[in-house]
Design a protein around this nucleic acid. Sequence first.
DNA 1: TCTCCATAGTCAACTTGTTGAATAAGTGTG
DNA 2: CACACTTATTCAACAAGTTGACTATGGAGA
Lengths: 189, 189
Amino acid sequence: MALRNAVMAALLDGAASGYDLAKNFDASVANFWMATPQQLYRELDRMEAEGLIGAVVVEQEKRPNKRVFSLTAAGHRALHEYTERLPRPAAMRDELLVQVQAVDAGNAEAVRASVAERITWARGKLARYERLRLRLLDGRTEDEHIARAERVGPYLTLMGGIALEEENIRWGERVLALLDRRAASVGEA
Amino acid sequence: MALRNAVMAALLDGAASGYDLAKNFDASVANFWMATPQQLYRELDRMEAEGLIGAVVVEQEKRPNKRVFSLTAAGHRALHEYTERLPRPAAMRDELLVQVQAVDAGNAEAVRASVAERITWARGKLARYERLRLRLLDGRTEDEHIARAERVGPYLTLMGGIALEEENIRWGERVLALLDRRAASVGEA
DNA sequence: TCTCCATAGTCAACTTGTTGAATAAGTGTG
DNA sequence: CACACTTATTCAACAAGTTGACTATGGAGA
C-alpha cells in the first residue's frame, strides 16, 4: 500500500499509461522507489477500483490501445494526506554491500570487479541525472527555479539522486584503492 | 533467498542467536539490509535445514534458552560463491523522498518537518557509526587496519554507511533551505 | 506489588514483490 | 523474409516481507 503513493507522485507529472510509468519510473521516481511493470499494473487496477485514479482508453492506430491514468480529486486528496503522515524509515537492500562485507571470506577479485561495475553504472546514472537537471532548469538559475517554478519537488529529489550517485562513485573508488592496498600488504607479508 | 547472504555475512562476526541478529543487524548489516525478527527466525530455520548454518541450544539459567547459530563449511562455501555472482542493483524505498517529490501538491509544512526529523535521525546514526569506527580501528590508523586486520569488509561497509548519513544530512539541510526560500518567494508574490 | 522492559522465541494471516510466459501488432536490420 | 525489438498489457505461481498476537521468565522502577 505504499507503491500507490509513489505512483500518485509520478502522476503529478501528467497522465500516463502503465507502460509509461514502468519506463519512466527510472527517470523520475525509481531513484527512491523501484517497481516492476507487473507491480505497477496490479496496483493501477486497484487504485482505479478505489477511485484514486481514472483511466481513459486511448485507441491507437499503429500500436496496441493503452489505458492512460490520471489523478482524480480523491487521489489528490489521498496524496495530500499522505504527505502529512510520518514517512517510515528508508529501506535499503544492496547486495553489493553484502558482498563487500563478506569480502574477506569470499573472492576478493570478483568483489573488486562488482565494485568497479557499480562505479561505471553510477557514472551513467549521474550523467542522465545531470541532463535531467538541465532540462528541469531550462536555462534558469536554481534560484529562479526555486522561486518561480510550478513544482520544486522533482528538483529536490533529483538533487538527492545526484548526491547519492556522486557518493556511490566516491565510495567505490575509495574501496578499490583500499582493496588494492590490502592486496599489496598481504602480498608482502 | 537473498536475506540468507546478509545473515551469513553477519555470522562472519561470530556465532549469534536469532535474537542477537535481530538486535545487532542494526549495528552491522542493517545499514544496507533491513530485516524484521520474524524474517530472520524463518530464514534461520530454513538455512539450518539446508545445512548452511548449525544450531547449538544454549541453556541459560536466568533467561530463556537460545539457539546459537554459526556458519558451517557448506555455509562458508555458499557465501564464497555468492561473492562471485553479480550483485543485483541496489533497491531503495524511501517514503520521505516520495513526500518531497509530492511536496507541491501536499502539506509543505508537514514535509518540512519530516525532512528535519530525518536530519536528526541521520545525525544519531552517524554518531553511532563513528563510535563503531573508533572501536573497529581500536587505536590503529586506517592504513594499519587495512594492512593488518583480519577483516576489512566491515570497515569498508561502515565507511559507506557514514558517507550515506553525511550525505543525508547535507541533502536535508539543503532541502530545508530551498523550501524556506520557496516559501519566502511565494509569500512575496 | 504492579507494571513495564529485556530476553528468546513461535504462529498465523496477510500484503508485497518477483519471475516467467503469453498475446498481439507494427517497426527496423541484415 | 526471417528475427529481434518496441509498444502495451494480462495471467499465474511463488517467494519474500509485514503485522499483530501469544508464551514465558527475570529484573528494575513506581
